[in-house]
Design a binder for these strands. Structure first.
Lengths: 208, 208, 208, 208
DNA sequence: TATGAATGAGATTTCATTCAT
DNA sequence: CATGAATGAAATCTCATTCAT
């Protein structure tokens, strides 16, 4: 009993280790199997191929992350509908963005997985994960930004700045993961970074 | 005449294409040779190995870029020695940083090479080029920032913000290359991005 | 059934043939695989690399040979401790060295392997096998010779003659293998050769 | 003037070094050319191919050695025609074999060449040089031995012992070269070795 | 004389994947 | 569920040799 899961689990563990150490491309399935104490046949019983094995490690955490992000951006956009003129101030958003702590917490809960996704996915179907998240984020940002711009006379959203601010906003998380292993410290860093990102955020709305 | 250079040049061309399309690791020397219309032996007459071929493409532009960067950071640090209190204002630096146009111009002059270096060097000896540039930049930033901090009472440089601002400053160039192919537009984008980076820059100096 | 061993065995067979014909260095793994009717991948399932394949052929017989030699030299040295003055006579040793028949027999049992080891190992980790055996033998000879010298007034072992006699003693076996395929005849040859080697043996002990 | 010879000579020198270091097979013509400061084309102007280059180094000394050997063996055989019964004694030959000093001297005059021939010729047309010398020697030995046997009633030459004694006689020179770099010491060693070889020599003549 | 370029065949090794059992 | 065996294609690299100039 449990033996069925054990092999699969052992494979996932050694795959995690190998992928993290060498990245998707250079990772060797042979080594993963050897480390798990099974032969390649076993691996191919549980997983369709190399990519499928990678997916089994990263897909769920990634999906959950996307869910959290979507929720956050939707809330953000909704807030912008408020009549309160404060929604156009950085301070307002700095206060409301405390929910991003949850995001940091989740990422550090699956620290290894996200490190892998962000730094070792080249060659797999996840190699464009960051781009994908950036795209998602950009859509969220655009909606909010356009709502904000509508409240300001003769203003519109500058496309390049939207791109770039989105990019560094997402990138801030990658940077955090790769430079700070401690969750609590990470949250503190991120709060300060977020403060400045929000301040910059409004600069993407420019006069016509 | 010209035949002497032709094969080497053809190899460099098809190598450029293959490396750009597939990245260093997945690039196939066979394909490079086939595309150049020669045998693998010919390649090994001109280049020691795969890495050496890559180096032949990227090394010189990279060296020149580093030179430009070093010069810029040295000038920057020197400016900070001025008694003019304006050196502590963002505006001053926004004006003096127009020389970064030259950097953008140089990068776009070798657009393909820098795209390759920044996005496809994994597996080669250049896989840490971005980190290396970030390190260089961080040293430059730290010197200037400490000089600025010395002029402000009870202030010091925050390490994490230094890291992060350095990172996004360097990253801004990668982002530019990957999102804007036109040099002139690129220069305009970069000027605006730089404005905000400079504004943020002073926020890394915090009260004790 | 039996199929499991077949491929590995076929590979060892064709490897034996190819190594014997061309020596380790010139031997082609491609040819070995082709002769065995499998692809190179199959070879690398069973053997780590070219050297490992060679080892699989020669290691065990070599180890056994070393064991036999060690036993012989230890017995020899022990005999020298005897108070019987006959131990200083060639005749005594000619009688006691009949156990070397076993050595010849063992070598002819693995005739091909020892031919390969002695004449075709250049380039492999076994290229110094003969030197190694000579070293082992020299140690054995030295111990016995010094014991003998101790029994003779004002005598010591001459180093060069020790070297040389050791060398031709070991070499006698190589010579035997390369010049006589029949075991029984080989044993007869070796007995006569041994007679003379023993006679020479005492000449390495010279007056001070 | 002399430039023509210079390149050829430089090639021979670096070839000597490379062959000695790596043996014929592993030696790289590229490296030889590089070390000589020329390109492969130059090499192929002076030498037909790799083997021809090797030949240019070793052929003349080898031919001279063969001449010396032939002369020695012819003299030896002639001596045997003497009516002096002393020719059947070891002592007689120990005295007359002083001319072998010349042989040792010649070999040490071309020390590197003979070392190369004896230990690094595998793969070249000279890989059987030792065998060839053994064959020559065997012919010489056989003639002398048969003349000696004719003087002794009911005696004949034992083939295997003839083989073996020939072999170790030739081998003694290889052993000398590989174990003693000093000519004078080498001559002393060889005299002692020769003494015993001559003593053994007569044992190849056995009763019918 | 010698260069510089190029050939073409070969080497060993690694890999993800498949499949009968 | 898992093994052990095998595939087959591809990888990088090395080499002696050739040849136009």
């Amino acid at each position: 009993m449990g033996d069925e899961l054990e092999t699969r689990e052992k494979l996932l563990e050694s795959a995690m280790a190998e992928f993290s150490e060498n990245g998707y491309m250079k990772a060797s399935l042979r080594k993963i199997c050897a480390d798990a104490g099974v032969t390649t046949g076993a691996l191919y019983f549980f997983f369709k191929n190399k990519n499928d094995l990678f997916k089994a490690i990263v897909d769920e955490p990634l999906k959950e992350l996307c869910k959290l992000l979507t929720e956050h951006y939707m809330q953000d956009a909704q807030d912008m509908d408020s009549d309160d003129p404060a929604v156009l101030s950085a301070e307002y958003h700095i206060d409301t963005h405390t929910d991003l702590d949850k995001l940091v917490e989740y990422m550090y809960l699956h620290y290894d997985v996200f490190m892998l996704l962000l730094t070792g996915a080249q060659g797999s179907e996840y190699e464009n994960t960051v781009d994908m998240i950036v795209d998602m984020t950009e859509q969220g940002f655009r909606i909010s930004a356009e709502k904000a711009a509508a409240k300001m006379p003769n203003c519109h959203v500058d496309e390049y700045m939207l791109h770039w601010i989105t990019h560094i906003s997402v990138d801030a998380y990658t940077h955090l993961l790769t430079h700070e292993r401690d969750v609590e410290k990470a949250k503190l860093h991120m709060r300060r970074v977020m403060e400045f990102l929000i301040k910059i955020w409004f600069t993407m709305i420019v006069e016509d």
